[in-house]
């Protein structure tokens, strides 16, 4: 099996995807992911020069849009109905440490 990903890289992916993992889990995940990525190799061996990608199946659709007309939405109560925590009509979250990207 090829080592596509090291444990340290897997730890990095876990951080990026915000999934907490123990060291044991990282070790097992590294094995699993390497095995799966191994099985994906045929895609890299394919002769694909000059082949256009198809990002959307059934390619005939384009320019699908709606008119700029208001539609019924939620009340504040409905919007917050599934909120784990809320305060003053808003979703409540604990402190944001560091920062989350492009802002």
């Amino acid at each position: 099996m090829t080592q596509h990903l090291t444990e340290s890289e897997v730890r990095g992916i876990a951080e990026y995807t915000r999934i907490g993992m123990t060291e044991d889990e990282v070790a097992q995940m590294t094995v699993d992911l390497n095995s799966i990525i191994d099985s994906l190799e045929p895609i890299r061996e394919y002769q694909l020069d000059g082949v256009e990608p198809t990002f959307h199946p059934i390619g005939s659709l384009s320019n699908v849009m709606r008119e700029d007309v208001e539609a019924a939405g939620f009340t504040q109560e409905e919007a917050l109905a599934n909120a784990p925590k809320q305060q003053n009509g808003s979703f409540l979250i604990p402190a944001i440490l560091g920062d989350g990207g492009d802002r």
Binding site: R66, D68, V69, E70, A71, A72, G73, F74, T75, Q76, A79, L80, N88, G89, S90, F91
Partner: peptide, 22 residues
């Protein structure tokens, strides 16, 4: 514009929180 980019919720500055959602 009247509504948001990808849904029909009204665009309004300064409304009560979470009253223009879907």
């Amino acid at each position: 514009l009247e509504t948001k980019m990808f849904c029909g919720c009204k665009l309004e500055f300064g409304a009560e929180p979470n009253t223009h959602t879907c």
